[in-house]
């Protein structure tokens, strides 16, 4: 029979509980690890693009003499050279440059909203969230135009061996190059656009909550911060899509 109780000294190491070893809230940590898993998904998509490209014949001739053919992988600047309002004018990568700038701008307004949240400045959070929503919507509209142009095709199209001309792109065939080129375009930019759309929806929810004073009553704007992390990740993915799909 034990009559004396021994007091165990409470554990106080970094990982013994009762504190935050990574100095970040549960929500922020989970957002980080979700984004890590999402990075794997996008990484796999872009790596499959690289695999497919290495498995196809590269175009080796002069860039000026380039024509669309299923024989070789297309040069991206010959595919993405259209701009709204400039029909038939060769403007390589001009539209994608505009889209990149819009997304960088939206990232800056997002980080300004997060900064305003740290200062509990409700008016500034509203202002910067609204700018981010505007840039996000513009980006999505640009992508809708880009997809439409890609699907409808150019006036020249691709001349087929039987003398007919094929315009535009579908999952089965496209005028730009091997079928997998259009498939990967749809999957990679589509998955990215879907992410932008999700982020845009979250931003609208955050804006409504901010206007209603939900975060102010809560005493912190961490929700804006978490949505900001997601939004910046979407911008980060675009940086990689831009390099590996449009530049290289």
């Amino acid at each position: 029979m034990s009559t004396s109780t021994t007091l165990e000294a409470p554990k106080s190491g970094t990982w013994d509980g009762g504190n935050e070893p990574m100095k970040a809230s549960y929500g922020k940590l989970m957002m980080w690890f979700f984004l890590l898993s999402d990075a794997f998904t996008f990484g796999a998509f872009l790596i499959v693009y690289g695999l497919t490209r290495h498995a196809h014949t590269p175009y080796t001739g002069e860039a000026e003499a380039f024509t669309f053919s299923t024989e070789w992988w297309p040069i991206p600047e010959k595919v993405f050279n259209a701009f709204p309002g400039f029909h038939g004018v060769d403007l390589p990568l001009a539209f994608v440059a505009l889209m990149t700038m819009i997304l960088i701008f939206s990232s800056v307004t997002m980080v300004l909203a997060v900064e305003a949240g740290h200062r509990m400045d409700k008016k500034d959070v509203e202002k910067w969230l609204l700018w981010t929503i505007l840039f996000g919507a513009t980006f999505l509209a640009c992508q809708a135009w880009e997809w439409t142009h890609f699907i409808v095709g150019t006036d020249e199209g691709m001349l087929l061996p039987d003398g007919t001309t094929y315009h535009g792109a579908s999952m089965a065939f496209n005028q730009y190059g091997p079928p997998l080129f259009a498939n990967l375009f749809f999957f990679i930019t589509g998955f990215h656009g879907f992410h932008v759309f999700i982020g845009w929806t979250l931003l609208i929810v955050a804006f409504i909550s901010t206007v209603n004073g939900v975060y102010h009553k809560r005493g912190h704007y961490e929700m804006v911060e978490k949505i900001g992390l997601y939004w910046h990740f979407v911008d980060l993915v675009w940086v990689f899509v831009f390099t590996f799909f449009y530049l290289i």
């Binding site: 100095k23 980060l236 940086v239 990689f240």
Partner: peptide, 18 residues
């Protein structure tokens, strides 16, 4: 990518383990 993750996503200023 470094500037977006380090500054905009603030990772540079988080704990080492994170």
């Amino acid at each position: 990518a470094f500037y977006i993750v380090a500054e905009f996503m603030h990772l540079k200023h988080e704990a080492k383990s994170l």
